[in-house]
Design a protein around this nucleic acid. Sequence first.
DNA 1: TGCGCCTCTTACAACGTTGTAGGCTCGGAG
DNA 2: CTCCGAGCCTACAACGTTGTAAGAGGCGCA
Lengths: 338, 338
Amino acid sequence: MAATLHDVARLAGVSIKTVSNVINDYPHIRATTKERVELAIAELGYTPNLTARSLRSGRTGSIALAVPDLALAYFAELAASVIAAAEASGLVVTIEQTGSGGRQRELDLLTSPRRKMSDGLIFSPLEMSQDDVAHLDVDYPLVLLGERIFDGPNDHLTMRNVEAARAATEYLIDAGRRRIAIVGAHEGELIGSAALRLQGYREALEARGIPFDGRLIGGSIEWHRANGARSMRDIIERGVDFDAVFALNDTLAFGAMRALQEAGLRVPDDVAVMGFDDIDEAQYSIPSLTTVDPGREWIARTAVSTLRERIEGLDGAPRLLLADFAIVQRESAPGVAR
Amino acid sequence: MAATLHDVARLAGVSIKTVSNVINDYPHIRATTKERVELAIAELGYTPNLTARSLRSGRTGSIALAVPDLALAYFAELAASVIAAAEASGLVVTIEQTGSGGRQRELDLLTSPRRKMSDGLIFSPLEMSQDDVAHLDVDYPLVLLGERIFDGPNDHLTMRNVEAARAATEYLIDAGRRRIAIVGAHEGELIGSAALRLQGYREALEARGIPFDGRLIGGSIEWHRANGARSMRDIIERGVDFDAVFALNDTLAFGAMRALQEAGLRVPDDVAVMGFDDIDEAQYSIPSLTTVDPGREWIARTAVSTLRERIEGLDGAPRLLLADFAIVQRESAPGVAR
DNA sequence: TGCGCCTCTTACAACGTTGTAGGCTCGGAG
DNA sequence: CTCCGAGCCTACAACGTTGTAAGAGGCGCA
């Protein structure tokens, strides 16, 4: 059995509150008393019971992070950064995966009694929509990530999807590409990352005076490698001419590169490929992937610090925080300066 | 403020214990009382305070998983599986990264007061060694993963490293390869996955009567893609002849494939490449990677169920559980039957 | 009618911690 | 010599829950 304050107090011959005071660095303690208590603590190997402390203080010292799936590189890397940032603040992170549970699962997560076990939640929904905004009005600190819901009652961190996608597309155009295919567009979808990035693509075309061609748009609901390959094959089989691909995320881009290779098309000579996310792997693929760094590291750090402010009682209107992005030039799409 | 049992009890006109009984499905409750209580619960939106419940019961309903780094695909996929398995048991998972903190960081983790916030720990150390085995004698349920420490006081799940590496090497030999380079051997290291897999490699050579050639061994301490590429380049520059590469994990294999490509060597025509881990990416790389599936999914599931048994009080000697492995044949190393 | 038993409900204590209020001792000022 | 305040320490209550013991009421059976 683990030792408690009572055990230490008995051994040291003081009250439990004095032991508590020693542990919490209360200033007015006689040096000899303190020493005696510390000796007792060492002898019993006492460590405070954080559960009891939580009950008393109302703080657990832990935050929750809810993401779709840790097996997706983007979310794994996001989680790694969130955990590191939280640890620097003395917080521990529990991770929940919403997986394929769909919208209901995301809603349940918001009201699960487990929320009481952490001081706040960083939530990256994938299925909820703007109609669900009311569900976000919860009584604990919540920081929202992603592009599913805007103008909710919470602090919200998001990428500059439109601007970044536009910059990526313009980068390809400026490198001399004119027929830019899209991989990963969610067909008929009006919200979320896909729609925003597609909008950036269209804005870039318009800005550069290049006509939009629907046959260049390859749809896919999920963003796995296999989807990227399938979507790319569809476009190739359609027989439509193209000299670049903008994949709406890196994983799709890897799948697309594979399909291009199978079709005997060379990257970047025949087709330039642009990704989105700058996951670790993008540096090491063959060829390495030119992509958009959407500011994931900043998002992770800021999500933690923002949540912490709310946990510590900061009041005020919900904030919308936008991450800076950057085009990361690699082999799959050489820049204009080549 | 969140409602408590007291609030519900007051509203329903019963004692708090009756409310508690309703929540915990105690059988002897009058139907009308139960209804009244449930109405009050609904009206106040009461959810139990799990922290208080934990304090009372001594169980937190959460387990901890400590891995080196979630940004490493193997651990991310392991974590995803652990979280899924834990959730199926009604447990939540907090993740700690030991990162680059080294041995001390791993030792600290074992004694951190945070351990009290979870019912048990699944721990995959990377820096501790056999000498640290005494540190594993902790007073909470602990399941050990990996190959750093054997014969500790805990249940231990591990891969069949030697057998799997031997099988992988024999696979290459049976496919006609004779000069098999190794990427990722930790030089001078006698324990851990690298040493075990290297041993399997040597056993296979011996079994097939092929002489060992130290010049074919490419060392590297870390197992990132960049290390794989560097290690591969070293071997190439050494001018030593080889027709296959056994990378000690998939990530190294991807790096090695990249270095091979840069050197103008074709995979698998000039050089066959074998990985180890079967991470998701292995299916989608170009070419797709022949590798060893070391039973990660089984390890995750079994780690959770084993830990659960211990949490529920199972006594008995520490168990050593070995995962089954399988060679997953893909493009980078066609099998004998091609 | 009385007793015991079953059903339903309650009061109380406890899990281990910390905040609050207060008590004791001692030294120095009035 | 008394009083006050600073320094040190303690008792008690509370956080929200559940196990224990026991009480109230009703019913069947002798």
